[in-house]
Simulated scan of single mutants.
Amino acid sequence: MSEELVLTRAHGRVLEIILNRPPANAINRAMSRAIYTALRELQDNPAYSVGVIRGQGERIFCAGWDLKETAGEGGINLELENDPEQGHGPGGFAGITEFHDLTKPVIAAVNGAAVGGGFEIVLACDMVVMADHAFFSLPEMQRGILADGGAVQKLPKMIPPNVAKDLLFTGRLMEAEEALRWGLVSKAVPVAELENTALELAQEIAQGAPLALEALKEVLAYVDGMSAREAMDRVKGGGDCDCPIYHRMVSSEDAIEGISAFAEKRTPVWKGR
């Protein structure tokens, strides 16, 4: 992983991933693969339970796809974009938008403008905190393309569809106050407080049992789109669902430890199994 493109910092059980391609943190193919490498470390290293993604600086989280790189190559080359070695890599655009087997929760700490693919990175995360001066925007329509790296697929399910269409068709800005109102973000804070706010939230989440954290993300993805009745039938009590982490969790040592610790009024000692 190139430290020039992506920096990582360990904070106990939290791995902070910092986009570091100034001035705009625009995503080229090399950066996509670097972000994926950092997320792969989060996923595979049992020392980590939660990830935090933020941009370097206080002005721009991520300006999205590096269109200058694409323009210099004569336009979109789908064969190259999808090449596992030279393209965006196994995690898709920005290393996260198609990292479907990432089972550890990730928090986006949006330190500034999140534009186009930068907004799609945010939509790929599990929780979002943002600086109160930051904003979201999807200007792809004005570039002759669609925001198909996650926005058209996810945004209409996350906020009222008419609001999502407004953003997609017009490319207008959504500022922090509006993002809070629609529930896209959990908190909006002054930029000086953003990193600590995100890390404190991540540390709070990381206190949970590691296997249960992964099982929760797995189950939430599994039941997405199901009716409540079907989801209950398939998941309740370790039911008939294709969720291997969830099934391991139900009979895990940590499940026994959590119940025992509660009964004994002590802090649980997790083993991740």
Rank of each mutant, 00 (worst) to 15 (best):
C243W: 04
H247T: 09
L220V: 10
A131G: 10
E214S: 09
A147S: 12
L184H: 04
F135K: 05
G239D: 05
V163W: 04
L173A: 14
L146G: 12
M174V: 14
R143A: 09
L211H: 11
L123E: 05
A131W: 04
E214I: 04
C243M: 05
Y246V: 10
P139K: 04
E177I: 12
L184G: 05
M232Q: 15
D166S: 09
I205L: 10
L201P: 14
Y246L: 10
A231P: 12
V185Q: 03
A202G: 09
P190T: 06
S137V: 09
M232P: 07
M249V: 00
V191R: 14
Q153T: 06
E214M: 11
Q203G: 13
L138F: 06
R143S: 07
A221W: 03
A206G: 06
A124Y: 03
E204S: 14
L184K: 03
E175W: 08
M226R: 14
L155V: 14
A131F: 04
L180T: 01
M127P: 00
S186D: 04
M174H: 15
M130K: 13
L220F: 07
K165L: 12
V235W: 03
G150I: 14
L167C: 07
L168H: 09
R172I: 12
R229K: 15
V163E: 11
V152R: 06
K217A: 10
S186H: 02
L199E: 01
R248K: 13
G225E: 10
C125V: 03
A221K: 08
K154Y: 08
K154F: 06
W182A: 02
G171V: 05
P161E: 11
D242N: 12
Q142A: 10
F169R: 10
G171N: 05
I159E: 02
S227G: 15
M232L: 15
V219S: 14
G239S: 08
A192W: 03
E230T: 15
S186R: 01
K236Y: 14
D233G: 13
A124T: 06
T170L: 10
Q153C: 02
A209L: 04
D166K: 07
V223Y: 00
E178D: 08
A192C: 04
L173C: 13
K187N: 00
L167S: 08
E193A: 12
L155E: 09
L199R: 03
E175T: 14
M249R: 00
M174S: 14
V152I: 15
D233M: 15
Q203W: 12
F169G: 00
D166Q: 07
I145Y: 05
P156Y: 02
L180A: 01
P190M: 07
F136K: 06
N162G: 04
A188Q: 02
V128R: 12
E193K: 12
G208P: 00
A124V: 05
M141N: 15
A231Y: 08
V189M: 09
M127D: 11
G239L: 07
E178Y: 02
V163P: 06
L199G: 02
V223D: 03
A221M: 06
